[in-house]
Nucleic acid binder design. Structure first.
Length: 720
RNA sequence: GCGCGGUUAGCUCAGUUGGUAGAGCAAUCCGUUUACACCGGAAAGGUCGGGGGUUCAAGUCCCUCACCGCGCACCA
């Protein structure tokens, strides 16, 4: 005890404390619920609390967004554990297919190595090496954050068990015709050389040039003259008074880029009469909307642009040119032919770009794998995946916090198209389908006979993430963990991945298990810099590194700065001043504890003296306070609770009770009562502070007389 | 265009059944009384974006406008 006292005499130093405390926790193995039961700190029949960690991508370092997620979830887990619940918080990482692959490609580019030169196998070795390295970094950084994750159950979206789960899920969906292969218009990312899903598109507003050309008797507008070679359908609104002389199906011959073509007139209500001239030509191969029209009227579809954004032979003299190089030359030719009517250079266009590579998305008709979201499923009461997803949230089986995201969720589902799940990249789960001539074979394992060739494509990374709540628990095997912990209690994640992930998990779980994946979804906001910028990869080195903050101010201070004033769904501006303030608070706790320890020597802890009237009243106040914050904890109102505890500790316990006790102890008037109050108050306050500030509270707890166990498995104060 | 969120003290933000506005930081004044100067005490600071309505009572409910941010859709 003497060396500890010496430590207490100096200001609180998180750096000297945190690593040791984490080691202590790890050695105790209390992060593992099985150990908690074995050591008698959790009842075997206790209520379950389970939660998966949204697996960080193995693409580098932890950023402040991760830190926020880890802090909120650690509070949830520690609170549940202290309530005596059988608590599992399960860690893992995500292979993040496109993100990881493109990162490695970029690194190889620096050494002038292309992945095609390496070949699939060699390239994958490089990616795996990088993934392993990133994984190790991330795990180390998570531990620095103080997380009470059960590392013994750690999973990876691409490990053996998860691969088995993915293949099992794929096969089941394939057998029930929910997964199909077909030619559809998809989003082609020429930069990443892969298809991406609708959700992986980021729209950017860009200024571009809008041209109006003469097209026979009409004038048509376009921002993309390079796609216009094959345009032989001209569409207008059936009620447009300007074009009543033309009938649906009329054919006309018009002079166009490479000579005369025969065009067919179509009348359709999709046309906006107010826009431009109210006439447009269509390019079904390279536009979602035009494709839909072409399907409706069974029109010809011609490919104009190849996968590398080069023009095909249909472009005549322009064939082989990149679209960006060809554009102006095409315009010039049309101008020379007298077909250019006008040019608007201030046109604002919304350009579809690929989330991960930044490439400009070029719609293409391609053969890909899809998940049918509208097909009625016999084994699920003839409901479609869409309906299953709507039902989960609509019935409140899954509750989303804050509630407003439920609306976004419904809106997304109502506009949902079939999910394109195949990707032309190498890193990820290879599609478990094999071909031999015209035969197709789908199974968890490859066919035994020779001569079968596996599909070269891999799965959208969110396919495996969708299984995460149960694949991590051993599914498809009926493991004890799966039976005990699924559905999980809560999913805590950023609101930016509600569609990518939350919706997909509900889809997969409802379909494969007939059950929800979690009962509650808690969505946190995005972390921003002090000047409001989104703290993301694009900020690069300018982003705050949570580990630097910890180094400077300590983990507990960072945690409070992320929790106080941060309500669900709202963005958080991380501000160094706040962090500094909470570091002061840590010191305050430290010093107040020192005072208590110095003054309670000699107390009979088994038989505490009675409170005098004044202290009894303060004791009641604390009980009232606990009641209040416990209710709020159960409502996930961490911002409020943390602020209240901060205030209670500082301005009630330290400023009033400790000051009052000084008098009593010095004057020898009801000194025992004062000492008993200091002791019991500190014990209780450390407990309720622990989920928020685990390190300093555990450290002080270790100096506490009469302690039985680590603070992390002590009971949250319960009032009858 | 449709929808959602925000607009509260100089700054960052809380404020859940409607009952005369709160915290942290900053700024002001006083105080070095041994747990803590990474401190204590005091005072100051807001017509809760504008306008209208419901109500005995509105930051809180309704309508409307403005600005900021976000989601979705369209963009020939």
């Amino acid at each position: 005890m003497s060396d500890i006292s010496e430590k207490l005499l100096k200001p609180y130093n998180p750096k000297e404390t945190e690593d040791n405390i984490y080691k202590l926790w790890e050695e105790s193995d209390f992060f593992n619920p099985d150990t908690c039961i074995a050591k008698g700190v959790t009842a075997p029949d206790a209520e379950t609390f389970s939660m998966v960690l949204p697996p960080p991508n193995v693409t580098g370092n932890l950023h402040t967004g991760h830190a926020l997620m880890l802090v909120i979830e650690d509070i949830m887990a520690r609170y549940a554990r202290m309530q005596g619940k059988r608590t599992l918080w399960l860690p893992g990482t995500d292979h993040a297919a496109i993100a990881t692959q493109s990162k490695v490609e970029k690194m190889l580019e620096k050494d002038k190595i292309r992945k095609a030169d390496l070949g699939r196998e060699e390239f994958l070795k490089k990616v795996e090496a990088y993934a392993t390295e990133s994984h190790d970094t991330i795990v180390t950084q998570c531990k620095k954050m103080g997380v009470s994750l059960d590392w013994s159950r750690e999973a990876f979206t691409l490990d053996e068990k998860r691969t088995f789960a993915v293949r099992t899920a794929f096969k089941k969906m394939y057998d029930e015709d929910l997964i199909y292969r077909g030619h559809r218009i998809v989003n082609w990312d020429p930069k990443g050389q892969t298809v991406i899903s609708d959700d992986e598109i980021v729209y950017e507003e860009r200024k571009s040039t809008f041209y109006t050309f003469r097209y026979g008797p009409f004038e048509i507008g376009t921002a993309r003259p390079e796609t216009k070679f094959g345009d032989k359908y001209v569409v207008m609104h059936p009620e447009d008074p300007r074009y009543l002389e033309w009938n649906h199906g009329d054919k006309i011959t018009v002079e166009w880029i490479n000579g005369p073509i025969e065009a067919t007139i179509l009348k359709d209500e999709v046309i906006d009469m107010q826009f431009g001239t109210g006439v447009m030509t269509i390019t079904p191969w390279h536009s979602h909307e035009d494709f839909a029209l072409a399907e409706k009227y069974k029109l010809d579809k011609e490919q104009i642009i190849d996968k590398h954004t080069k023009l095909l032979p249909i472009a005549g003299e322009f064939a082989g040119m990149k679209i960006n190089d060809a554009r102006e030359k095409i315009v010039q030719k049309l101008k020379d032919k007298g077909l250019l009517v006008s040019v608007d250079e201030k046109y604002i266009n919304r350009v579809a770009t690929a989330e991960r590579t930044g490439g400009v998305v070029e719609p293409q008709i391609m053969e890909q794998w899809f998940i049918d979201v509208n097909k009625k499923i016999p084994s699920r009461e003839n409901k479609s995946l869409k309906e299953l997803m709507l039902e989960a949230v609509g019935s409140k089986s899954v509750k989303i916090i804050p509630e407003r995201f439920e609306k976004e969720y419904f809106h997304w589902i109502n506009n949902l198209r079939d999910w394109c799940i195949s990707r032309q990249i190498w890193y990820g789960h290879r599609i478990p389908v094999w071909y031999k001539g015209n035969e197709m074979y789908c199974d968890v394992n490859p066919p035994k006979e020779a001569g079968w060739e596996q599909d070269p494509d891999t799965l959208d990374t969110w396919f495996s993430s969708g299984l995460w709540t149960f694949s991590t628990l051993g599914w498809p095997e009926e493991t004890e963990d799966f039976k005990t912990y699924h559905p999980t209690t809560i999913l805590e994640t950023g609101h930016d991945i509600i569609f990518f992930w939350v919706a997909r998990m509900i889809l997969m779980s409802k379909y494969l298990l007939g059950d929800i994946p979690f009962k509650t979804v808690y969505m946190h906001g995005m972390v921003r810099t002090a000047d409001g910028k989104k703290m993301s990869k694009s900020l690069g080195d300018k982003a705050i590194d949570p580990l630097d903050i910890i180094e400077k101010y300590g983990n507990d201070a960072l945690r409070l700065a992320m929790i106080v004033g941060n309500t669900p769904g709202n963005d958080l501006k991380l501000n160094e001043n706040d962090i500094r303030g909470y570091a002061k608070f840590a010191n305050k706790i430290w010093n107040a504890s020192r005072f208590v320890f110095e003054n309670i020597k000699g107390l009979d802890f088994d038989n505490l003296p009675a409170f005098d009237k004044e202290d009894a009243s303060s004791d009641e106040d604390l009980k009232e306070f606990i009641k209040e914050i416990t209710k709020e904890m159960n409502e996930f109102r961490y911002s409020l609770v943390s602020e209240k505890i901060y205030h209670y500790f500082w301005h009630t316990f330290a400023d009033i009770l400790i000051e009052r006790s000084k008098k009593k102890i010095q004057e020898g008037q009801n000194a025992d009562s004062a000492k008993a109050l200091l002791y019991t108050h500190l014990v209780t306050l450390l407990k309720i502070l622990h989920p928020f500030m685990p390190f300093i509270t555990e450290e002080i707890w270790s100096m506490m007389p009469k302690k039985k166990n680590l603070l992390m498995v002590e009971r949250w104060p319960v009032l009858k």
